[in-house]
Design a protein around this nucleic acid. Structure first.
Lengths: 239, 239
DNA sequence: TTTTATTTGTGTATGTTAGACACAGTTTTT
DNA sequence: AAAAACTGTGTCTAACATACACAAATAAAA
């Protein structure tokens, strides 16, 4: 894993002068082809051969643009998530952080494989850094230390990721429904050993509403408001 | 991905009567061999051949015990995380949830690959379910709905995962330090476009203390306390 | 304008991986 | 003793990432 190589690649540090024939492909084109495959058939379906073939080229020609598969996936992930919204709306700091977190979700839902692609050590791309910047900027002027700010970020992003991951397995497509069904089956058969899970599951299936993301965010942001000494914002779920 | 198969496997639903020779291996033995490899060299180093070889057997003999690699990894992950602590200590509900989350961390730190292995759709094993049960049991008697309880779980576990993931890339070993160094380098070169990240990073590197896990947990649990209408517990970071 | 250096796209080859399948040896049941 | 069932193994295939060398193309240098 040559991380230094993929850095220059992700950040577009290409040497200028060329002499040979003009390259027929671009990073953008390649990444888009990979994204299309991953969206339709999952990250496992993305192979050098497949991406190249979809572009009408040979597998080996891809290596002229990308050092390896890891870098290709990094490129795909950074492009798929896109840039953060320029405007997080009005409201106080925490409301804007809430908007930020909410804005993060659609990307994960549209490209569930990004969750897989961004676990473990990786190179942070321009878009990912832009998302970080957008959130951290909201914490300017607070008395939080650098580590604490990073931590607020981690909590928020972690929660969104968790929700996205949960959502990615739920919709009725492939193994998703199976997973839910199997979990339910296990709990039904051996539910006596897991009463709390059984109860929560039953009640969740009954009530049905999943405002999971909002609920968790409110939890976190209420805590943050208290920590910052700011007044509680408008909160629809509590009087 | 045959999820039904791995379910019976993870939960030990083996058919009773045997006629042929006694099996030389057990799921436990196989999983431990895999865990040893993953701990030492990462999840990528775990292959059927490698695990079998380390046990002194042929690759194909493993398939007598495990339907495929996915099931092997699921087995490894469930065993590696182990059972939740029987006693979460005294204190109020939120203090016990805090203890639960803190107890979750060492497993992730000892076996960083579990993060990778438990992203995406998977079969939930006995230990994972036991962890869920332990946390959900603390929410008994609250007015939270089933979905909300699951969500509290997701927020807490998600945060611990995030911290573990961050920690997994930090310690000075392989690509970890590189990643941090590269991020720092990117920010140093182009820091003007990411002032908030730059500031947070600089301050974090300076201050140094990373009570990241505790900070985030307090954030979440403060929010939860407010939601539950319980008084704030003893909190060392606030008067 | 000719030559030369450089870069692209490709074909071929290698090593690794997951998994299918059939077979021989072993053990329990009949 | 015979039959049935199960285990461990060897062989085989297909997919994959990646190394390497080569021909065609193209821009800079002569």
């Amino acid at each position: 894993m040559d991380l230094t190589g993929s850095l220059a690649l992700l950040w577009g540090d290409r040497p200028g002068p060329r002499r040979g024939p003009k390259p027929a492909l671009t990073h953008d084109l390649i990444a888009r082809a990979g994204i299309a495959i991953a969206d339709a058939e999952g990250l496992a379906a993305v192979s050098m051969h497949r991406v190249a073939a979809d572009l009408g080229f040979t597998k080996m020609s891809l290596y002229r643009y990308v050092p390896g598969k890891a870098e290709l996936v990094a490129l795909m992930a950074d492009l798929a998530m896109g840039a953060p919204p320029a405007d997080l709306g009005g409201g106080d700091r925490c409301a804007r952080l809430r908007a930020w977190a909410l804005a993060l979700l659609p990307g994960f839902l549209r490209h569930p494989w990004v969750l897989e692609a961004t676990t473990g050590p990786r190179v942070v791309g321009p878009n990912e850094l832009a998302w970080m910047e957008a959130a951290l900027a909201q914490l300017d002027g607070t008395d939080l230390g650098g580590a604490a700010r990073m931590d607020v970020l981690a909590v928020l992003a972690g929660h969104v990721r968790g929700i996205a991951q949960q959502a990615a397995t739920t919709p009725g497509g492939d193994a998703g429904t199976q997973l839910g069904a199997i979990l339910a089956e296990v709990v039904r058969e051996r539910g006596d050993r897991y009463p709390a899970v059984k109860a929560a599951l039953a009640e969740a299936a009954e009530g049905g509403e999943d405002e999971a993301l909002g609920f968790g965010l409110d939890l976190i942001l209420d805590g943050l408001r208290a920590r910052l000494g700011e007044p509680a914002g408008a909160d629809p779920t509590q009087s």
